[in-house]
Nucleic acid binder design. Structure first.
Lengths: 119, 119
DNA sequence: TCCTCATTTCAATGATTATTGAATTGTAGG
DNA sequence: CCTACAATTCAATAATCATTGAAATGAGGA
């Protein structure tokens, strides 16, 4: 991932409404949510949510698709993954001791709420 | 990591000069660099670098220490790790298939530039 | 103490960014 | 074709952020 693209993504995630949208859409999964539903969920005006959705799309954090009269947005997991990779490449370059704890802290592997933590 | 703190960190990293400073300090390692040296490296005025350094410190991305007449800044690896964890927790929540590729993309384990990729 | 160097603080300016409400585009159904 | 609805675009305003240069702080050395 290019530095410029990474900065755009960081800027996108630095805004309260936009970060809430991303988290909402990550929760929603590939199914996604209509712009109107997102606006309602995060409690902002339609025109304002549209503004932020466009910014997030431009930043590669979400992806839109049309469905009847609605436009459905879903999280762009590839973009999110690339951003994480960018950050890790930076701070793990010569500092692998940082990565491992990050993974643990993210609880990436343990199945959340399930019985067994690992195979 | 709190959402507010994460947003502050994202905002800090979204600015060109500040991102360059962070990458520079990650490269520099725990030894760190003096404010003046940083200013010279990223080619901005002393007062401007001071402005950005303060912002990065506030965001928990760097940490200062005094040494004789200089103030030495170094990357805050804990803060960086926490930010990565925040991002991963968000996008890996129920989507572990994203994490693994992120790690690979970050080339977290392979020793960069060395002969052997793995033990 | 006096002088110098390293850095920060301050106030002012310019540049981005967020928010609002009205007007517009595009889709579907009667 | 006309109406209703979903979402976006647009222009204006308010708010936040970045940059600059001058002045202040603080640590050492002569």
């Amino acid at each position: 991932m290019e530095e410029r693209q990474a900065r755009t993504a960081f800027a996108a995630l630095s805004q309260e409404t936009r970060l809430r949208i991303v988290r909402l859409l990550v929760q929603a999964g590939p199914e996604g949510m209509a712009a109107g539903a997102i606006a309602e969920a995060v409690e902002v005006s339609p025109s304002n949510v549209s503004f932020h959705l466009k910014d997030l799309e431009h930043a590669g954090m979400i992806v839109p698709r049309r469905e009847a009269r609605s436009i459905i947005y879903s999280a762009d997991f590839t973009g999110l993954r690339d951003l994480i990779a960018f950050l890790m490449k930076d701070c793990c370059a010569g500092h692998p001791e940082i990565c491992a704890p990050a993974l643990a802290a993210a609880q990436c592997k343990p199945s959340t709420g399930k019985k067994k933590a690992r195979a």
